[in-house]
Design a protein around this nucleic acid. Structure first.
Length: 421
RNA sequence: GGAGAGGUGGCUGAGUGGUUGAAAGCGCUCGACUCGAAAUCGAGUAGUCAGACCAAAAUCUGUCUCGAGGGUUCAAAUCCCUCCCUCUCCGCCA
């Protein structure tokens, strides 16, 4: 949700934003709509005031006086209900339109039409070189008996997978490594509910726009979350947080579910695009003044995690055309995947400034100062995709997988996953 | 799955048709008393959306809000309907 004051006072800023994002919204028409609805509010409030005044008088008077007053009230009611229905119509239209407005992007966000406008900020680490023919993670996984897609498909359908043997331990190791790192930095660990109410999906802005992306339970009207961002963001909804507690940092581990509607045939096979995966998500509630500082902290932390695993990656600054509506800025972290011979997204880090907080009514209080907090989130570790990256980057000539140093401890000392005899 | 209870201000909790946005208590803020504190006394203490003023803040005026939505009525926290949510007991269960 955008700031109404901004729409009223500086509609040109919003128009510029919409243009940059390649969206089409008639801002001026909505400004007029707002003016109209406000003048109706004034007229309605005026009648209500008269009603309230009369209402206080009625019990004190009697006879014809009272009779007259009651009749006056009746006629006021007629005026009122017609104005009210006009208002409701305008109001509904206005806020429906407003729901489509994007957040205002940070000046550092590049302007561009689509993903081709995204800017590579930098590369970290070196692309690994192999003097043998590399395998992709599916070939490796099948060879080492680490993933089973066939049976998953038999019992659940396409885009599901069994993780098996050492790679199960690898998942636990990753979770331990990442959680410990985040707890050390003051993040509060959480395991959230993965089923949420419909209104939570609306509140966090995932509905109605992306409603077809998520699973719904048939008997209870609950939805499976696509990311822990949903319960994390809603965690403090309708709360006022003392500024002294900001920034409030969380880290949630959860399974995530996505229908992947509209991606038929895309990235089939393996761990990259599945209906169910596990993820650790970072989330921060920050005061507006420290927002961008906290956001860069998120990025640094994400990079620290990926660097710790020794993966080569590039950091992308997503352009206006490729940003989500709530995002003021977004970094994507793309890891080099030797088996795909390309960089693939394994993490995404965005600052939604006060866009979500406004919608979920999350405020801060700093003495006499009150306002909406800023919310931002970042993947800490998308477990499936990270496992995929480790498998492909740490393979050896014999199709074995070396365990990254940082994880050996959490693997009970196991240094390599090798072919079973 | 069966049976029941309930949703009122930061909290506890009154309030079954008319100066009730809401008693009382607690908490909190300010003031008095005190060398200081406690106790005591006094005052204040919800948010929303508009409007006036304004650079802005503050202030003032009005509106709406007693889980949500609808209905009855001149008038609803209070009566009626629908929905949502929370809790307790029994059953089942990791």
């Amino acid at each position: 949700m955008i700031d109404l004051e901004l729409l009223r006072k500086n509609p040109e800023i919003i128009e510029e934003e919409i243009k940059n994002r390649g969206m089409k919204i008639d801002v001026r028409a909505d400004v007029r709509l707002d003016t109209e609805r406000r003048s109706l509010i004034v007229r309605i409030d005026d009648i209500r005031a008269k009603k309230n005044e009369a209402s206080k008088l009625i019990p004190k008077i009697a006879g014809t006086e009272k009779e007259k007053m009651i009749n006056k009230m009746k006629s006021l009611n007629e005026d009122l209900s017609s104005l009210e229905s006009q208002f409701e119509e305008l109001d509904r239209r206005f806020f429906t339109n407003l729901a489509g407005y994007p957040n205002i992007t940070h000046p550092s966000v590049p302007i561009g039409k689509d993903e081709s406008g995204n800017i590579t900020l930098y590369f970290v680490g070196n692309k690994p070189e192999f003097d043998f023919k590399v395998k992709n993670h599916v070939e490796l996984g099948v060879g080492l008996d680490l993933i089973d897609e066939e049976r998953a498909s038999k019992i659940s359908g396409a885009r599901f997978v069994f993780l098996k043997n050492e790679v199960v331990l690898l998942q636990f190791a990753l979770v331990q490594y990442v959680m410990n790192l985040l707890i050390g930095k003051g993040h509060i660990p959480l395991i959230p509910p993965v089923l949420v109410k419909e209104r939570t999906m609306y509140g966090t802005g995932f509905f109605p726009a992306e409603a077809t992306q998520y699973y719904k339970t048939e008997l209870d009207d609950l939805f499976l979350i696509g990311t822990a961002e949903v319960p994390l963001c809603a965690f403090h909804s309708d709360e006022t947080i003392d500024a002294a507690r900001l920034p409030l940092k969380y880290a949630a581990y959860s399974t995530c579910f996505r229908r992947e509607a509209g991606s038929y045939g895309k990235d089939m096979g393996g761990l990259f695009r599945v209906h169910q995966f596990d993820k650790i998500e970072m989330f921060i509630f920050a005061s507006p003044g420290k927002s961008w500082q906290s956001y860069e902290y998120l990025r640094e932390t994400l990079e620290e995690i990926v660097k710790g695993l020794g993966l080569h990656y590039r950091l992308m600054n997503m352009c206006t055309g490729d940003l989500g509506t709530p995002n003021a800025k977004k970094y994507d972290l793309e890891v080099w995947m030797p088996g795909q011979n390309t960089y693939r997204e394994i993490a995404s880090c965005s600052n939604d400034t006060e866009f979500q907080a406004r919608r979920l009514n999350i405020k801060f209080k700093d003495g006499d100062k009150k306002g909406f907090v800023h919310t931002m989130n970042s993947t800490a570790c998308a477990v499936g995709r990270t496992i995929m990256a480790i498998m492909e980057n740490y393979q050896d000539q014999d199709g074995n997988i070396v365990i990254p140093d940082k994880l050996v401890h959490y693997m009970g000392g196991l240094k390599i996953i090798s072919r079973k005899k």
